Amino acid sequence: MSVFTLDTKPGNPVTIETLDTVTEGLGVTIADSEKEDYRTLLAVYHEAVETLFSLPGPDVLVPDTTRSPREDVCPPTAEENPLGAWAYRCVVRDKQAPADGVLAGRTIALKDCISLAGVPMQLGSSVYADYVPREDATLVTRILAAGGTVTGRAVCENFCHSGTSHSAASGVVHNPYAPGYSSSGNSSGSGALVAGGAVDMAVGADWGPTFGLVPYTGCGSNEPTNDHAGPMTRTVLDNAALLQAMAGNNGVDDRSFGAPKPEDLPDYVGTLTGLATPTDLRGVKMGLIQESLDMPGFDPRVLATFHAAVDKLRALGATVDLVSMPMHKHGAAIWTGISKAGGATNKLGIAFGGAATS
């Protein structure tokens, strides 16, 4: 063990008696002539840890509610919630957002694991029925600054742990195209609200999208290497716009440190609009992961629908090629092994290290 000083402050609680208690518990014997040296090392370490705990952490993202007031915060009425997809309603916009922001005039729903100050957050469970965050997630701050209007929270599955849409404490989430059928999961409400036209866009969270591109700071976590937030939209261009607003390193989430700073991001929207129009995709190249097309459990009807969409892209002029990614085959095993053990650890109160925790 090495330290940078042997000086300790008056009143340091590490005493010879402390050392004796520790060594006895460990079954270790220290010569009386060496005890003061060991006591000093432990006392210096104690002061170093005290200093570490006293340092300011990352800025808590407490919003300026004068600039972005929380308005019309209330549970959804039955009339406005036919799909069971709204968890809570509100209207939140940044009064100083530019009129030409990438999300100007767009309405956005947030999955019910994303912190929005002043609006109850339940994570799909009755356990957190009374929890009201006091901070905005990084992605929320960015959405508001880009001109977006948050109109509520979307139901998510209980603790975000179901691939269906029936486990939320608030009840089932219906498929807008087929009421009574699943809206999938675990971002079931986000998908239903977008597909049903209740909002222009939504933010979901899942276990597997691009790692760290959108900071997860301020979002409920299952396991840091699995947790990701991202855009859910009806069109590719809308997806690019919402990603443009949210993406980029925030200097806090250590999962996002490999991402560019927001000002250094590619121009997702400009790239799309510069390459093609919705009816002319000539010059656009797309890759399909070959190993993703024969995964176990694939419903042949889903696969047929997917291939029909690919055929339409080719008909519009796009070049669509198969790309081999052998590791994709192991994705399910990797996710299962990590998410179950990691999620259980988190729920037992054993916090994850680093700034990535939320």
Results as ranks from 00 to 15, higher is better:
K329I: 11
K111E: 04
D206M: 08
N158D: 06
T8W: 00
N186H: 10
D136H: 12
P69L: 06
V172L: 01
R89D: 06
F352W: 14
G251S: 06
F4N: 11
S54C: 03
V320Y: 05
S188N: 08
P278K: 02
G353H: 13
R39N: 05
S2I: 09
R134P: 00
P326R: 12
P209W: 07
A318Q: 08
G251T: 01
L139Q: 14
V302M: 05
G196R: 09
E157C: 02
T164A: 14
G25A: 14
S126V: 03
T279H: 06
A198R: 13
Q96I: 13
N81Y: 05
Q96E: 15
E36R: 07
L265I: 04
S358F: 14
G25N: 12
D264H: 13
L281Q: 07
L55K: 09
G57N: 10
F53L: 10
V173W: 07
E79W: 04
A229L: 11
V91L: 10
S125L: 08
I108Y: 03
K95P: 01
F257N: 11
D64W: 12
V91P: 03
G27I: 11
L19V: 08
A117G: 09
T138V: 15
A99I: 09
P75S: 06
H330D: 15
G208Y: 09
E157P: 01
T357C: 11
S170C: 07
W335Y: 15
P260F: 02
L237I: 05
T235H: 04
S165F: 03
R282M: 04
V132Y: 11
A195C: 14
A355D: 13
A168T: 11
D100T: 11
P224A: 12
N239K: 01
A129W: 05
P10Y: 03
V73G: 04
L303N: 00
P120M: 10
R255W: 08
V92F: 05
F4H: 05
S54T: 07
M295C: 07
L322G: 00
A104E: 13
A202T: 08
T138Q: 11
I350E: 04
L242W: 00
L316W: 03
M286P: 07
Y131Q: 01
E157A: 03
K95H: 14
G11T: 01
T65A: 12
T77G: 15
E24K: 15
V302N: 06
G274D: 09
M286F: 10
A240M: 08
P10W: 00
P75L: 00
P63L: 14
G354Y: 12
G171M: 00
P75E: 11
C113P: 00
L322K: 06
